[in-house]
């Protein structure tokens, strides 16, 4: 006796009760609203003129939208200790250099871990997995000593160089390479006389584009939000996030400008995610850990 199979989105859908579908939809709408509303309010808030920021009861929408908060923010920026463009320059410098280094060193190491069976690679990879299990705050104090030893205190390299060896991107890229680059193709290239670097660059890398995009996005998100750091003391090496936080901490006086600042800080990473989403999800498909 053949069972009747329902079809939705050209896929066979099984065992679905209408009640369950409705329940799931309701749950999704409620949870989704809870996630979305704070973002929505922040954006609304940033377009409110001063008199609407301080009315009782507060409104969930704008009556007379204005971009005054944004222009205030830029005015505030121009009165900072060092030119505001300097903070932005620092953040961009950290983000670009850190991401590039992480991509270069991380994908090389990922290729070797995934595709070259050298003794000791399993142990190496276990250490990478272990490093995902704790946060960098733990190494902060000891790293301060290392940085002092290397003479990198108050040097922006103290933020950029450790970013090179961030392990999440390496982990994701290694897992992705393992499952999506076939050994036969690499082996035949090696038999044709191609060196490992050539195989890596001309064969493996083009095949793992989603993974390197994912690595770039994660490295970017982490570094873009770099705030104040114990390594950096001089104002001219502070970051955009630090400057924004200074504005945020001023509270009531700058209520409008600070929401504008929050919105600006949010837009960049969210836009990057929108553009790269399908690649990230594809990479995440192989992110699993084997027991």
């Amino acid at each position: 006796m053949a069972k009747k199979l329902r079809v939705r989105n050209h896929k066979v859908v099984l065992n679905r009760s209408a009640g369950g579908d409705a329940g799931i939809t309701i749950m999704l709408v409620i949870l989704g609203a809870m996630m979305f509303l704070p973002m929505y309010f922040a954006v609304m808030q940033s377009f409110k003129p001063l008199d609407e920021l301080w009315i009782f009861p507060p409104k969930f929408y704008v009556i007379n939208p204005t971009i005054k908060n944004y222009s205030d923010l830029f005015k505030l920026m121009s009165t900072s200790w060092v030119p505001f463009s300097r903070y932005i320059f620092n953040t961009v410098l950290i983000t670009v250099c850190g991401t590039f280094g992480n991509l270069a060193l991380g994908s090389l190491a990922a290729y070797a871990l995934a595709k070259i069976p050298f003794p000791g690679r399993n142990g190496m990879f276990k250490m990478v997995v272990l490093s995902l299990m704790f946060v960098s705050t733990i190494t902060g104090v000891a790293n301060f000593i290392t940085m002092r030893f290397l003479g990198l205190i108050d040097n922006i390299l103290a933020i950029i160089i450790p970013a090179f060896c961030s392990t999440l991107g390496l982990y994701l890229m290694k897992q992705f390479m393992e499952s999506s680059v076939s050994d036969q193709v690499l082996e035949s290239a090696r038999l044709d006389g191609a060196g490992e670097f050539k195989v890596f660059w001309t064969i493996a890398m083009p095949m793992v584009k989603p993974a390197w995009l994912t690595l770039i996005v994660y490295s970017f998100q982490g570094l873009w939000n770099t705030g104040s750091s114990i390594y950096i003391q001089s104002e001219q090496w502070k970051t955009f996030n630090y400057a924004i936080n200074q504005i945020l901490s001023a509270g009531i006086v700058r209520a409008g400008a600070s929401t504008a600042a929050m919105v600006i800080m949010m837009i960049v990473p969210v836009t990057v995610f929108v553009i790269t989403q399908s690649n990230i999800i594809e990479t995440m498909g192989t992110s699993g850990m084997k027991d």
């Binding site: 060193l105 090389l108 070259i116 690679r121 990478v128 790293n143 290392t146 890596f200």
Partner: peptide, 29 residues
């Protein structure tokens, strides 16, 4: 190890930094 020595060359840059900035600090603390 000799046969796959390129593997070590390729992981070296990443893992040297990884040791300096992650493994050593954990042990040092």
């Amino acid at each position: 190890m000799k046969k796959h020595k390129m593997g070590y060359v390729m992981i070296a840059p990443f893992f040297i930094l990884f040791f300096i900035f992650t493994v050593v600090p954990v042990l040092l603390s």
